[in-house]
Amino acid sequence: MRTVVSVLVSGLSRIGLWGRGVVVAIPYLWLLLFFMVPFLIVFGISFSESIIAQPPYSSLVEWLTDEDAGTSKLQILLNISNYFRLGGDDLYILAYLNSLRIAAVTTLMCLAIGYPMAYAIAKADPARRGPLMMLVILPFWTSFLIRIYAWIGILKGNGVISNLLEWAGITSGPVEILYSDWAVYIGMTYCYLPFMVLPLYSTLEKMDPSLLEAAADLGSRPFKSFLSITLPLSLPGIIAGSLLVFIPAVGEFVTPELLGGPDTLMIGRVLWNEFFANRDWPVASAVAIALLLVLVVPIMIFQHVQGKQAEAGR
């Protein structure tokens, strides 16, 4: 009887382990299929040559049979010139730098607006925090494209802002903000703000208010307490929010395309042009892989900092 029970128990626990494995395996399988495999395909294409054919790139692997010599060869041709082109052409380097700059400015603007917002929400009456956070997320309920189109109407010459400035007598004649870097900053800051506010709010809300009381009790004025207590303790939230804004902002395509000027050169637009205008898939793939490398570095830093934080918080 006893052995039957123990077998049953161990069997059940094995199913339990297996069940846990399945739960973990399904999302990983999904990622493998729809992220890792496409990534490897793109990675492969980046080493091929552009040809006029369908698909428009050469195959990396070829099976060569020499009838005369009676030999067969497996030939793998890796064309690394695509990557050299990225380094050699100012266009690409400029586009990368521009993307990093625009993403950095967007991140800083999101931080400058998002931090006070998150702080105020975290300090608000507990009953009000829910609705306030809901308002932050509310824009997600309408289409992203519609919201960007709305900005066109706001930013264009004779648009809402232009007319308002004119009506107030600050400017005479229409002011054209649209199709400039500033329009891109405004649009992207608007889009990514919730991604900054959410992680900041969650770290600020968790903070023990008695820490600030202790600081005040020890003679620290409120602003100094903010600098020496609140700010360092909210660093994980700042890093998480910044990465959530920075990483997608680097590769952003739609907002700069709709709001930016012809000289707003971002890597997303270059990528688009290479794929659809030039039909140069190998170069486009190389651009994408290089972009990924640019983004992996900040992610690694983030992981490292988070790991340390988790260790410290134990």
């Binding site: 008695s210 202790a214 009790d217 020890l218 360092p232 410290a312």
Partner: peptide, 20 residues
């Protein structure tokens, strides 16, 4: 008179030590 100007110090129940 705000806490930071009082000639008083307090030991908190939760200790409120600065974790960082």
């Amino acid at each position: 008179i705000p806490p930071y100007e009082r000639p008083v110090n307090m030991m908190f129940q939760s200790y409120a030590l600065f974790p960082h």
